[in-house]
Design a protein around this nucleic acid. Sequence first.
DNA 1: CAATTGAGCGTGATATTATAACAGATGTTA
DNA 2: TAACATCTGTTATAATATCACGCTCAATTG
Lengths: 138, 138
Amino acid sequence: MTIAMPEDLTHNQAIVLDCLIEAGRAMTAYQLLDELRDTGLRAPAQIYRALSVLARRDLIHRIESLNAFVACRHGDHSEIVAFAICDDCRTIWEFTLPRDSSLNAKADSKGFTINSAIVELHGRCAECKETRKQWLGH
Amino acid sequence: MTIAMPEDLTHNQAIVLDCLIEAGRAMTAYQLLDELRDTGLRAPAQIYRALSVLARRDLIHRIESLNAFVACRHGDHSEIVAFAICDDCRTIWEFTLPRDSSLNAKADSKGFTINSAIVELHGRCAECKETRKQWLGH
DNA sequence: CAATTGAGCGTGATATTATAACAGATGTTA
DNA sequence: TAACATCTGTTATAATATCACGCTCAATTG
């Protein structure tokens, strides 16, 4: 799947987004800084500024539990976005929760209005589980 | 609701847990350090060590989106724990997701095995929504 | 008993993550 | 033109978290 790269990004924003898309994985701000040092980005503030614009536009997501950032891979941001993070291979699967999920139901039942939600699952993806089984001789 | 204070905690662990329980809200490690400086806890490492034991025992939870810690208010840790955080009054409502939630279903459908989950809702609690309505003259 | 082990402790230093503050450049609007 | 908003590069600093050392104490074990 090719990720769309908007035309109206500034130079720095485009560079940072491109790096995240190319990487295909979550990267911390300082990992981005290391990667991008020879493109002229030298200071944390430059990275964080770009990240903050990209995140506001939902072109990237911040993974709270990794203090890292990942290029967005889906469309509809009116639904709750969730991540399944494989702690073996670091792959991140991005998906959305239906509007009538038990999460929304619980919140509604208490009169809680959701502005934003962080949903991050940690565990093992199907591939790594298979691999692990082989190691263990199953 | 009174929160149980286990007997087998060390001095520092008990002090930190007690502070979180008394506070009734999420506190960062450095807020705890400030509060507890006159009890003899002087260094970040002391706080973080206590927090790490308490978290391992599920006596506290880390709120990723606040970089903060809160005393646990419920029992069953075999279910997914979720937090609804009021961004007005900072109150945190802790609840669990049913084992057959759409979250588990989605993960299962992809063969993803959940080891741990972070679910943090941000928004406005029922009380604050009322208050806000009054401000706006509704 | 002595030896070992493991957990926790206090301390100082350091690593990692993130923001503040300032001044210059650029494009847009009035 | 002037006012403005946004982005830029830079330096410095704040906020969050861990490492490494040597010490104590209690439990285990030979």
